[in-house]
Simulated scan of single mutants.
Amino acid sequence: MVVQETFSIATDGRGTYEITERIQDLVRQSGCNRGTCHVFQHHTSASLIVTENADPTVRRDLETIAERLAPDGDPAYRHDLEGPDDMAAHIRSVLTSTEVTLPVSEGRCMLGTWQGVYLWEHRYDGFRRRITVTVQGE
């Protein structure tokens, strides 16, 4: 069986937005007991990550590193049509990922005790981000 659903999440700008429970609900509703859950976000200036969900300083530290790797407004960037965070957001998206695949067992994603799934918004402004979840299995 294959079940697919698309939903949107509104962001308030740069930062991480946990979507774990939404994904777990979709897996539960799918009726899949064992298989895989693929999560894809449809944008070039945001990404998906699986990371620590207990201590928010982990996500703040990730943002610090992203700022070092892809600083806003770097004069070497040619693509800046939408502002100084435009190209930096694209780079951050490429360095992370636009998708994650999670194993499903006993009707839920097999995440570790301290793992959560997050949409990572790389732009300063808020956006509506579209996410497609595909659950496949038995």
Score class of each variant (00 low, 15 high):
E5P: 06
E138Y: 06
V27W: 02
G83C: 08
T113W: 02
W120A: 00
H122A: 00
P56Q: 04
R123Y: 00
H122V: 00
G126K: 06
R60F: 02
D85E: 07
Y17G: 00
E138P: 11
V94W: 08
L102Q: 09
E52Y: 02
E138C: 07
G31S: 01
V135L: 04
T101W: 06
D125H: 13
T101F: 05
C32E: 08
M87Q: 12
V50K: 06
E99V: 10
T11V: 04
R22I: 15
F7K: 06
A76N: 09
V58C: 05
G35R: 02
S30P: 02
D86S: 14
T98Q: 14
I19C: 01
Y77T: 06
N33P: 01
E106P: 02
S45I: 02
V3P: 06
P103I: 02
S93G: 13
L102W: 08
E138T: 10
V27L: 02
A66N: 07
A46W: 04
H43M: 14
A46I: 06
N53C: 08
V133P: 06
R59A: 00
T64K: 07
G31H: 03
Y17P: 00
E5S: 10
T36A: 14
M110R: 10
V94S: 14
E106V: 06
A46N: 10
V39E: 06
R128D: 13
V27S: 01
Y124G: 11
P103K: 03
T132Q: 06
C109M: 07
P56T: 07
G137H: 05
E138N: 14
A66M: 14
I23E: 01
Q136I: 11
S8H: 14
W114L: 03
C109Y: 05
C32I: 12
R22K: 11
E99I: 10
R78S: 14
D74E: 14
R22L: 13
T51A: 08
A70D: 11
T96Q: 11
D85S: 00
H43T: 15
D86E: 15
H122I: 00
A88L: 11
T20Y: 08
L95V: 10
Q24V: 07
G137I: 04
S47V: 12
I49F: 05
Y124H: 14
V104C: 04
R129W: 13
T134N: 04
R22T: 15
D72E: 13
R128A: 13
R128L: 13
V39K: 01
S45H: 05
Y124W: 07
A66L: 15
S47Y: 12
V133E: 08
G15M: 01
S97I: 10
H90M: 09
Y124S: 12
V94P: 11
N53S: 07
V104Q: 04
R123D: 00
L48R: 05
H43Y: 15
E106S: 09
Y77D: 09
P84R: 12
A54S: 03
D72M: 10
A70Y: 05
P84C: 09
T6I: 15
V50Q: 08
T57K: 08
N33V: 10
E21M: 09
